[in-house]
Simulated assay, not measured.
Amino acid sequence: MKDKVSNPIHDNHGRPITYVRLSVTDRCNLRCFYCMPEKGMKFLPKKELLSYEEMERLLSILAELGIVKVRITGGEPFVRKDLASFLANIRKITGIEELHITTNGVLTKPYVEKLSQLGITSVNLSLDTVDRQRFKMLTRRDEFNQVMETFHALLDHNIPTKINAVVIEGKNEQDIIPLAELARNYPVSVRFIEEMPFNGSGGGYQSLQWDYHKILNTLKTRFPEITKIADKPHATAMHYKVPGFKGNLGIIAAYSRTFCGSCNRIRITSQGVLQTCLYDEGTLNIKDFIRTGASDEAIKDLFIGAFGQRAKDGFEAEKKGPASAIHKSMSIIGG
């Protein structure tokens, strides 16, 4: 990695923009009910997605604006062909210091050695249960064993690994403690995430039953010696340590939106839409400007303009958008 070439751009609330989450596909090989409907998803034809070359160009421009951290998301990133070559090219971009991946782990194991060779900074592995039957119910696919093989392969290759578990009322509350126990035996961070209403079905909810308070109280009941530990700057998770654990535990208040005040991240969807907040409807379609011949400087100006109009938090962004935006699929938003 070469040194970054620019100080970070700050938004209109004084927050630095240093982190981009880039979705490489809207497709996924699971059908987790809190993310997307079982049937009826209309996936985009390839021509409507950003090409790898277009993504590399955008990342180079963003690096010049001070982006140093990239997370590759989907859908499921490993559904898209030639992902490893794309990752290798990202590692060559001047200014990009960290490269992370979020995956469901079903197709990931054959690429783990390559990820290690590339020096991937970390992998977030989505896993909402350690029970095979409940996994099948939650994801509508019987792929639990493949995910666990990926989990162990990541650890065998010393790739820093985080478990992302969405807590859903009436579905997997009983898995909170078994999932937490993974951090006892393995050097992983197990993070429990509040459920969000981006399920693609339009069937949102009025209130959240399992918020971060309830998740923490559940952990305290089982692990009374749990203590708060320091979080890194701009962290979305609140982290905790249990004596004797090799790893740690975390809680991400994604629905409560407690971390908006220090948010340093933007999102670019697989179809090239910039989102300066998870809860906004999309600020601009960068793909359209790329394909009509916009220069790097023009695209840079578009980014700077968008960063200067960010919502203060997810609640403000949600109010500004159409009522239908909150019911999009997480596979479209890009995690």
Rank of each mutant, 00 (worst) to 15 (best):
M41E: 13
P178I: 08
I168L: 07
I226E: 04
R140G: 06
G170P: 01
Q209A: 13
Y255S: 10
V112R: 05
E48C: 06
E173V: 05
N124R: 06
L179C: 08
V273E: 09
R291A: 11
K47Y: 09
K246F: 10
G14A: 13
L118I: 11
S23A: 14
G203P: 00
L179Y: 06
L216D: 02
S23L: 00
F86V: 07
C35D: 10
K228T: 14
K287F: 10
E297F: 10
K109I: 10
Y212V: 11
N248W: 01
M148Y: 06
K81V: 06
A63N: 07
I163A: 07
A183I: 00
R191N: 03
L284H: 03
A325T: 13
K69L: 07
E318H: 05
D156P: 03
G119N: 06
G66A: 03
R21S: 01
S201V: 13
R140Q: 12
D142A: 13
S6F: 04
P322L: 13
G261Q: 10
E143H: 15
T139L: 04
D313R: 08
R191C: 01
R191L: 01
D26I: 09
Y255I: 04
A237I: 09
Q174N: 15
A235C: 08
G105H: 06
L83P: 07
P187S: 12
T227A: 14
G308P: 00
E98I: 09
E143A: 14
I61E: 06
D231E: 12
H157E: 15
D156K: 14
N124E: 05
H157N: 15
I304C: 02
G272Q: 04
E316Y: 05
N248I: 14
I176F: 02
E54Y: 05
A165M: 13
L274H: 06
